[in-house]
């Protein structure tokens, strides 16, 4: 660790001497070397692929390589700590998301302040789906609500440990229909893929996850996504929650970019502008579409407000749970 810090310090010092000459106009020639993008989970999942798509697009635009590095473990805390502690020169960035930022606001004894970082941009977002077994007899959101309200304690729902936006999509539904979340029979799972499989088999009555997690079992006819919380061009037949009469059920998950707290404004600006320029990029849109996501760029103050609002929503929903 020490050597790495020393190396980073040397690099930073060199960078300082270099920029010192042309610093008069407030411009930055960032980036002049490869950028390390820390991905807070293991390789291969849909979110990892999304972060990699973002890295690739960024590298094309910036003209410097953007190298994704997976640092998994400890519920994404390891990766966030790593980026927090890195030199704030813009060459170590975090592939951020709800799980590594706003959801962490709910955690006690976090080794850092959750919002003590530079939020640069949200790049893409995806929506969630409420899914039930094809044999459940439940066909619409109204059927679902009726079934939950009838006897919450015998209604089983997949729970991902409260570490995922999917869980808060579920809590949002329960709050909306005035069902006490503590009455539900929660069955724990570690990923939405497993949860969807259990829902399809009828082992749980309801599973909530990213729309893409329902794709295969939906096409095999075992699982019915009753409604989606936002647009997903891959699922034209699944109604929007808003169309079913529940516009408040609008939880999304996102992938974006952040950096250490004292990141230079000029560097953050370069990155934000670059990502804004990708809003209409067709290739990027196509790669995200395959992952069930849409390009949904948000930067600057708007993004800051979005982060705050999301954290507040999570805190409010989390308050409904006893432990």
């Amino acid at each position: 660790m020490k050597h790495l810090k020393l190396a980073s310090a040397v690099v930073a010092a060199c960078a300082l001497t270099l920029t010192a000459c042309g610093d008069d106009d407030g411009e930055t020639d960032y980036p002049t070397e490869a950028i390390d993008l820390t991905i807070p989970f293991g390789a291969g999942g849909a979110t990892d692929l999304a972060a990699r798509a973002m890295a690739e697009a960024l590298a094309d635009e910036l003209g410097q390589p953007v190298n994704p590095t997976n640092r998994e473990g400890a519920n994404q805390i390891t990766a966030v700590s790593y980026v927090n502690d890195a030199t704030a020169d813009g060459y170590t960035l975090l592939a951020d998301g709800g799980g590594s930022s706003t959801l962490q606001s709910l955690l006690e004894d976090l080794p850092y302040e959750w919002d003590d970082r530079t939020f640069i941009a949200r790049v893409a977002s995806g929506s969630h789906a409420y899914a039930v077994s094809a044999n459940s007899g439940i066909e619409t959101m109204d059927d679902l609500i009726e079934a939950i309200q009838e006897d919450p304690s015998s209604f089983s729902i997949a729970w991902l440990g409260g570490t995922s936006t999917s869980d808060f999509t579920t809590l949002q539904l329960l709050a909306e229909i005035d069902v006490d979340a503590n009455d539900i029979n929660w069955v724990p799972f570690t990923g939405s893929g497993d949860a969807m499989q259990a829902a399809a088999a009828g082992d749980v009555d309801l599973a909530v996850g990213g729309t893409s997690a329902t794709a295969a079992l939906y096409s095999s006819g075992d699982l019915i996504p009753l409604a989606k919380t936002g647009e997903d061009p891959n699922f034209p037949d699944v109604p929007l929650t808003a169309d079913e009469g529940f516009p408040e059920l609008d939880m999304i998950y996102w992938v974006g970019l952040s950096g250490p707290a004292d990141l230079d404004d000029a560097v953050a600006e370069v990155l934000a502008t670059t990502l804004e320029g990708l809003s209409d990029d067709e290739d990027l849109a196509a790669s995200f579409e395959d992952l069930g996501m849409v390009v949904d760029v948000l930067t600057g103050d708007e993004f800051e407000v979005y982060i705050e609002t999301e954290a507040e929503t999570f805190a409010e929903l989390d308050g409904a749970l006893e432990d």
Binding site: A215, S219, N234
Partner: peptide
């Protein structure tokens, strides 16, 4: 069914998704 039996299968699933193929 798109059910991965392990980490490497999950990776192949991801790859198929990127190629625009939904298992089923």
């Amino acid at each position: 069914l798109g059910i991965p039996t392990g980490p490497s299968m999950a990776l192949v699933l991801g790859a198929l998704m990127v190629y625009g193929l939904t298992p089923g």
